[in-house]
């Protein structure tokens, strides 16, 4: 069973073989967890969101149609992150005034600032979309082509945007 591809396994899960999900969990949970942790820098939240991803896989298993599994799971992860982000933003805007929030495009207050190392701080200063590209490309080592598939863009556009984001990050990193 271990030699099956992600796609073959996912098709069987879609077919009702739920127990096989534990194989995909083994293959992906560390990556997905790290994706979230780089995005929000909060271990608890990242674990919860990772758990959500696998729950969603079960819920939406029949909507899986033979495509690249990695792209599919990251699409789910992105959606989950998106709704988490919207929720936090909403909750916070109920407390703080909106102007302040608009200028702060990050979820920094989710985590304790002093615990972050220098790079993490710099990362969190990027826009969400920029941060995501760096996380996916550099940390998760996903190919440009696949990122394009996940976020629904062209390979070239992704490449250019990623390079731009990296450059920006580098400037923030060395400046601060």
């Amino acid at each position: 069973m271990k030699h099956l591809t992600d796609e073959e396994i996912m098709l069987q899960i879609a077919d009702g073989q739920l127990q096989l999900l534990s194989i995909l969990f083994d293959r992906y949970h560390v990556r997905i967890y790290n994706y979230f942790n780089k995005m929000v820098h909060n271990k608890m939240v990242s674990e919860d969101l990772t758990q959500d991803v696998f729950l969603k896989i079960i819920k939406y298993k029949t909507s899986y149609k033979n495509g690249n599994f990695a792209a599919w799971i990251y699409t789910i992860a992105r959606n989950i992150f998106s709704s988490y982000y919207q929720r936090v933003k909403k909750e916070r805007s109920n407390e703080i005034n909106d102007d302040l929030l608009a200028s702060e495009e990050t979820t920094v207050s989710e985590s304790k600032q002093e615990e972050l190392d220098h790079l993490q701080k710099a990362l969190l200063k990027l826009k969400r979309s920029e941060r995501e590209l760096i996380v996916m490309h550099r940390f998760q080592e996903i190919k440009y082509e696949q990122i394009a598939q996940i976020i629904g863009s062209s390979e070239n556009a992704v490449k250019v945007k990623t390079h731009r984001a990296l450059k920006k990050l580098k400037e923030i990193y060395f400046q601060a």
Partner: peptide, 22 residues
């Protein structure tokens, strides 16, 4: 520096909760 970022390993809770959920 970026590439030397180590992969973090989630706590065992994640696996436990996953198993329960499954």
């Amino acid at each position: 520096i970026l590439d030397n970022q180590k992969t973090e390993i989630p706590s065992n809770n994640l696996r436990d909760n996953f198993n329960k959920m499954l």
